[in-house]
């Protein structure tokens, strides 16, 4: 199937989903308080957007700051673990144990330490995205073919030159694959923390809307979150395709 047809089908599916929702709500006469219709949600989104906007920025800020810190820490740890066989063996079990803690559980701890607000949101976003980055960088480095390193060794390259010219480029596809996942996780972490302990951010808006029975605002928040999540994922997919095109080997075969 051609690309265009796949796109059309996928758009039709999304449209169909909302149309179905609208029709079912009208037909079964579902109360607005339980499940508002998509058109109502859209209207709320439109009228309340000026109020939502600062919260969107707040959530985006917490997510990206936490994610940025997570990338720095994740890459550093990943390089340390991936370049040393000893560190790989010693630290890997610890990392696995660490990663299996449900990250929700760290939010109360951060709140206890730093009070509610932006700080726990940033920290949660950071903690939640570090692990996939560390694992992927470490795996990319540890699985580098020795033959490729040998090429640089015969030229008398130092360890850091080998890392820069072979290890890191080789780990890039792994790194970008993990970034797509990690940025989405950071987003989840930030919203989660906002829901529990903050007076700003989309998470908080939704919490307040829920306790005031503003159901359509609640759903508007959900839509905003979905849109942001998709946007973040799309940005990193695009970057991935640009930077690691060599790994997917895309060339068109001319058909004449």
């Amino acid at each position: 199937m051609s690309n265009l047809r796949i796109r059309i089908c996928s758009a039709a599916l999304i449209f169909g989903f909302f149309a179905m929702w609208e029709v079912l709500c009208l037909w079964l006469q579902v109360s607005d308080l339980l499940l508002p219709r998509p058109t109502e949600i859209a209207a709320t989104l439109w009228t309340r957007f000026p109020v939502l906007w600062p919260h969107i920025l707040q959530t985006l800020y917490s997510t990206l700051t936490g994610f940025g810190l997570g990338v720095i820490i994740g890459v550093t740890l990943g390089v340390l673990i991936g370049t040393s066989r000893l560190a790989y063996g010693v630290a890997y079990p610890l990392l696995v144990g660490f990663s299996s803690i449900p990250k929700v559980a760290v939010v109360p701890i951060f709140v206890l330490w730093f009070g509610s607000g932006t700080t726990p949101a940033i920290l949660t976003a950071m903690v939640i995205c570090v692990f996939p980055i560390v694992v992927n960088i470490a795996t990319g480095l540890a699985t580098t073919e020795p033959e490729l390193e040998d090429v640089l060794k015969t030229l008398g390259a130092s360890r850091s030159e080998i890392l820069w010219n072979v290890g890191l480029p080789r780990a890039m596809p792994y790194f970008f694959a993990s970034l797509k996942v990690a940025v989405t996780l950071s987003f989840v972490g930030a919203v989660l923390s906002e829901t529990v302990a903050s007076n700003r951010g989309i998470g908080n808006v939704m919490m307040t809307a829920s306790s005031n029975f503003q159901t359509s605002l609640l759903f508007a928040g959900l839509f905003v979150l979905a849109a942001m999540g998709v946007a973040l994922y799309a940005v990193f997919s695009f970057l991935e395709a640009r930077v690691t095109g060599w790994a997917t080997r895309k060339t068109d075969i001319a058909v004449t």
Partner: peptide, 27 residues
């Protein structure tokens, strides 16, 4: 030293030009 390995071990993320240029970056 210039070494040509038995199996061509060109770095897959570099173009041929960049691959051939690699020793000039290191040596």
């Amino acid at each position: 030293i210039g070494m040509a390995f038995q199996n061509p071990t060109l770095l897959p993320w570099l173009t041929i030009e960049r691959n051939v240029m690699l020793p000039l970056k290191i040596v």
